[in-house]
Amino acid sequence: MRLLLVEDDPMIGEALLDLLRAEHYAVDWVRDGAMADTALRTQHYDVVLLDLGLPKRDGIEVLQALRARRDRTPVLVATARDAVADRVAGLDAGADDYVVKPYDTSELLARIRALVRRGAGVAEPVFSHQGVTLNPATREATLDGQPVPLSAKEWAVLEPLIARPGVVLSRAQLEEKLYGWKDDISSNAIEVYIHGLRKKLGSGFIQTVRGLGYLVPRE
């Protein structure tokens, strides 16, 4: 899953970047509101982690512009503005959730996972389909109840596919889930990870739609 981190404080930003990457998220980090607006206009993200007190353009303005474009990307506001009026303003501007600094990192990660599920239209805390179960909270995968070891990249490819059975995702869309701006992308990386997943989960679990991409078929 790919996240946009919008945070101007370098110490907080570095700490969050390390935390999120340790959880195997692909993360782009921008440090002002103008860059955030540009990123949101040109890239697709599964979740935005948005500070409000930003240089060049306030976070509320960035959020309002996003929603004015009818963009439904889940947004978690993470800010030092702790007054009730600020929380109300953030939520009314279109935020899906709001946390106040300093926050507990385990709670922050849980809120991000909840927004990922909401964005996928899934209420359950785990993704389960045709005997395969993924638990994002523990990063555990099972097949018919038996543990299946997945690499971080294999997980990143499988999660968006199993979250939306029957939906075709192109190679470019899957690459977006794996890589940030500064990452090098191998030309056949997705094919390699799909091959590995088929060996572990069964050759028919992920299907190729010629010329379009890949999908996990519906029941």
Rank of each mutant, 00 (worst) to 15 (best):
T105E: 05
Y103A: 08
L17T: 12
D92V: 05
I206T: 06
I194R: 07
V116W: 01
R218H: 07
V47M: 11
R111K: 09
K182F: 15
A137R: 15
D58N: 06
K153I: 05
K182L: 12
L158E: 00
R67S: 09
V99M: 15
V148Q: 03
L63Q: 05
R69C: 05
L201Y: 11
L19H: 13
G33M: 13
A110L: 08
L19E: 09
K153E: 00
L63Y: 08
A39H: 11
E140F: 02
I194S: 07
Y98T: 06
L20R: 10
Q64K: 14
M11L: 15
A15E: 14
S203N: 13
I206V: 11
I162V: 13
W155H: 02
G94C: 12
R164G: 04
L174M: 08
H44R: 15
D58V: 03
A110V: 03
Y25E: 04
L201N: 08
D32F: 05
P102R: 09
L109W: 10
L134F: 07
G196M: 02
R72A: 14
A78T: 11
A22S: 15
A152D: 10
D144L: 01
A123I: 05
A114Y: 04
A123G: 12
V132C: 01
I190R: 08
E140A: 06
D58W: 05
P136W: 01
E191T: 14
L40P: 08
P136A: 03
L3D: 10
E107L: 09
A95Y: 04
L20E: 07
E175K: 14
V62S: 00
R31F: 10
L49V: 14
T38K: 14
D8R: 10
A189I: 13
P165C: 02
L150W: 00
E7D: 10
V77N: 09
Q146V: 08
A83N: 07
Y193T: 04
L115F: 04
S170F: 05
A78R: 02
V167Y: 01
L174Q: 12
H44E: 15
W181V: 06
Y25Q: 03
R70E: 12
L16A: 10
Y193H: 13
L52G: 01
L54C: 04
A39C: 11
T42A: 13
D18M: 15
E124Y: 02
A123R: 09
V75G: 12
D46S: 15
L91G: 09
A89H: 11
R118E: 07
R2W: 03
V99R: 09
K101C: 03
R210L: 03
T133N: 01
H44D: 10
F205D: 09
Y103V: 15
L143P: 01
R218S: 08
L178D: 01
G33T: 13
I12C: 07
Q146P: 05
G94T: 12
L63E: 02
V132A: 07
A163D: 01
D18S: 15
E61C: 00
I60Y: 04
L134I: 14
R21S: 06
Q173C: 06
R171I: 14
L178I: 07
A95V: 05
R69Y: 09
A68R: 13
I206Y: 02
R41E: 11
